[in-house]
């Protein structure tokens, strides 16, 4: 499913989007398939499926550890695309990974494999707009959205360039740092949101972990929230994982409805 279609569907229901990140293959491909099912049941609207890289520089300890577990269990790009293709839920799937895995497979082939396995968006945290000519061409050819990040340090001129290159949604990193849960999120969020003037839906990520934060970020004007480490922590705990994933999804989604 295309990302824009999902946003249209939500808009008609007057809802904002909940986007969940989990690391594919943590702890196994079968488990990931189950977790996606559970998350969607709990109200998740789109799923970012992390393809693990050995050296994830933009990630904090939680997602680093998830990547290690997944790689240890044998996840690789071939099995990743098989897994993605086997997911039945009708939600947009987004591939989040680092550029060397894309480069090594061949940019064109990687994007083609995404499209063929039902992935309709790509996020590459170590690929700034300067280096994206190849991947943008491939994305266009295969109808896959390339999603870019903006941060509190991105100036107006750069933002404008990013708006014209990106599609799907704009990923707003609400504060400096790597991925991971944080106690306070909202403060700098509103400042950044106010600076971002784009027709693209604005999704806020990095640090959100509970319903209260979700409500605050949506109230600040976001069209979507992205939650990763909080879900990954539940998976890592191995304690009533599915029950707690569904519960957290419900709590977060509640913050996205009726504001």
């Amino acid at each position: 499913m295309r990302i824009a279609e999902k946003f249209r569907e939500l808009k008609a229901k007057n809802e904002k989007a909940l986007i969940a990140y989990i690391c594919a293959g943590d702890p196994s491909a079968d488990a990931t398939r189950e977790y996606v099912h559970t998350l969607v049941k709990g109200g998740v609207d789109m799923v970012e499926l992390g393809l693990p890289f050995s050296d994830p520089v933009a990630d904090g300890p939680t997602i680093q550890a998830a990547s290690d577990r997944s790689l240890e269990a044998g996840m690789n790009p071939d099995t990743y695309f098989e897994l993605a293709a086997s997911i039945k839920e009708q939600v947009p799937l987004i591939c989040m990974t680092y550029y060397n895995l894309i480069f090594r497979r061949g940019v064109e082939k990687f994007v083609k494999d995404c499209a063929a396995s039902g992935i309709t968006g790509i996020i590459v945290p170590d690929l700034p707009i300067e280096e994206t000519d190849d991947i943008l061409k491939a994305c266009k050819a295969h109808c896959v959205d390339m999603i870019f990040m903006v941060t509190p340090l991105t100036d107006k001129e750069r933002m404008q360039k990013i708006f014209t290159k990106g599609s799907g949604f704009l990923y707003i990193v609400s504060r400096l740092g790597v991925t991971g849960t944080r106690a306070d999120v909202a403060k700098s969020t509103k400042e950044v949101l106010d600076k971002v003037n784009t027709a693209l839906p604005r999704a806020v990520g990095f640090g959100i972990s509970n319903g209260k934060q979700a409500t605050e970020v949506i109230a600040a004007g976001a069209d979507a929230i992205i939650v990763g480490s909080a879900f990954v922590n539940i998976i890592a705990s191995q304690d009533n994982v599915e029950g707690r994933l569904e519960e957290l999804a419900r709590e977060l989604k509640a913050g996205c409805i009726g504001q």
Binding site: D126, L127, P128, E130, E131, L153, T154, R158, V173, L176
Partner: peptide, 12 residues
């Protein structure tokens, strides 16, 4: 060569 880094580092 090039600059394959997170967006947040580009201004720096």
């Amino acid at each position: 060569g090039g600059q394959f880094v997170p967006e947040v580092l580009m201004p720096a």
